[in-house]
Amino acid sequence: MRTLSLVSRRLAFVGALLLLWEALTGGLGLPAILDPIIVARPSAALQEIARYSASGLLVKDVTVTLQEATIGLLLGIGGGVVFGLLLGYLRPLAETVEPVLVAFNSLPRIALAPVLIIAFGLGIASKIFLSLFTVFFVIFFNTYLGIRSVDPELVKALRVMGGDRWDLARYVVLPSVFAWIFAALRTSVSFALSGAVVGEFVGSTSGLGYRMVISAGLLDTNRTYAILLLLMAIAVVLVEIAKRVEDRLLRWRPTAILAS
């Protein structure tokens, strides 16, 4: 295992999975164990991606979905940070609103989709809101807990140095809160994408989720799987970007040593 690079090992594993899947669905000249009408053959799904792309719909759908997810993500992070800081600093307010927040947080946030579509229509606004809500709570709770778990010894150290409230916020509270927020970045990215796609499932006129529901309804298994593969690829890329950002910004942290 030592001799091969991590990237080649990972690619080999993905390749093996695709080959197995291809074989099970009757590819490679083998008898089909899974009916390709029910489970698409990966080669067919990949060909479908090419066709989908050639029709010009792919770019349009990807753009819509990414737009919803990105705007939702950014607004969710912004809102979560602002509210988290506000409630983290204003204890009495936090204590007052806490039960309601916990209630909202325990709700499967995806369940808001129908409500949001009634309120904001079939366009991208309802998906942005769904994305926003899913991200908001993750970031909000991390910010809030981040403030609560600031190391009191560091606060003490800054106070004896002569630091006032602002110095404390600047040197201790915000940096430790940001560590919590960045740690939630990866989760938030995949949440934002799920928010957008589920919103599209429930009611929309474009986007990857919309196209997928339509294809599934027409029993177009190949296209349904093609979109599924695309969503996976997009998620992998986005999460990898989030991971890079996180590693860069949290490079001061001792790296956890994973079993190798």
């Binding site: 190391d151 010894e153 560091l154 003490k156 150290a157 004896v160 140095m161 002569g162 040197y171 201790v172 940096p175 430790s176 560590a179 001061w252 942290r253």
Partner: peptide, 19 residues
């Protein structure tokens, strides 16, 4: 008021996010 005191703790209280 305003006097400059230094305090060295037993536990390390360096800010971990600063070099």
């Amino acid at each position: 008021n305003g006097t400059r005191l230094g305090y060295v703790f037993q536990r390390d209280t360096l800010l971990p996010w600063r070099t």
